[in-house]
Simulated assay, not measured.
Amino acid sequence: MDVQLLVACSVMMTLMVLLPGPDWAYLIAAGTSGRSILPPIAGVLLGYLVVVAAVAVGVGAAVAAVPWVIVVLTFSAAAYLVYLGVRVLRDPPVVAAATDGRAELDASAGPAPVAASDRPWLRLAQGAGVSGLNPKGLLVLVVLLPQFTDDSGSWPIPVQLAVLGLIFVGCCALVYTVVGFGARAVLRLRPSAMKVVSRVSGAAMIVLAGALVVEQVPHLAGWA
């Protein structure tokens, strides 16, 4: 692959990951849940790996050629974000006093803001749902990624797409690990801010859902 294309694509994908979106809101909420942040992070990465695999085998081109598929996925993502956001607002985390005098997240005092179960696989599935339906991720992997491939390169196009997609997932792993663990670390130092941040992240998911729907209105108007 062309090194310049690879660098340009890496910079573009890193900037896209750094833009706050549904993944950020979900992982911040998960970071305040009092449970391990690893399953939600792994779930988000798994969702993107599935999309990368689909793009590499040609599904991405087929999706891009059928505009209504993106619209359906966007509305599905919006509905899912509203569901998660409402759960966060209804069941914020609880702060309990630890034996050493420091405030700790109390996972037993009520439902977690994003996951209603201690089962890691369920939180992993939730994370995969958030990223797999995230229009921003789909935009990067389905629309932007093919623009950085080289038809004259020595690697087949599917291999190039897979490599570029894995770079994107690597960027996500780095940024979202910092976001998830950073949210938890900050909130442990400032437990009084936990409910505020949790509710802000829940509201952010609902607002982002509305923004996703608004973005699709011109497409719907064009079909009318």
Rank of each mutant, 00 (worst) to 15 (best):
Q4K: 14
C9L: 01
V11Y: 09
M12Y: 11
T14A: 13
L18W: 04
L19N: 04
D23I: 03
A25H: 05
L27A: 11
I37C: 12
L38K: 09
I41D: 06
I41P: 02
A42M: 13
L46Q: 04
L46V: 08
V52L: 04
A53T: 12
G58W: 04
A62V: 13
A62Q: 11
V63C: 07
A65E: 15
V66M: 15
V66Y: 14
I70K: 12
I70M: 12
V71Q: 10
A77H: 03
A77P: 03
A79K: 09
A79E: 10
L81T: 10
V82L: 11
R87W: 06
R90T: 10
D91V: 02
P93D: 05
V94R: 07
D100E: 14
G101P: 06
G101Q: 13
D106S: 09
S108V: 11
A109F: 12
A109M: 10
A109N: 11
L124I: 07
G127T: 00
G132Y: 05
G132V: 06
K136L: 10
G137A: 01
L141I: 12
G153M: 15
W155S: 15
Q160C: 07
L166V: 06
G180D: 04
F181Y: 08
G182V: 04
A185M: 12
K195F: 10
V197D: 06
S198K: 07
V200M: 14
A209T: 01
A211H: 05
V214G: 01
E215C: 01
Q216K: 08
P218T: 01
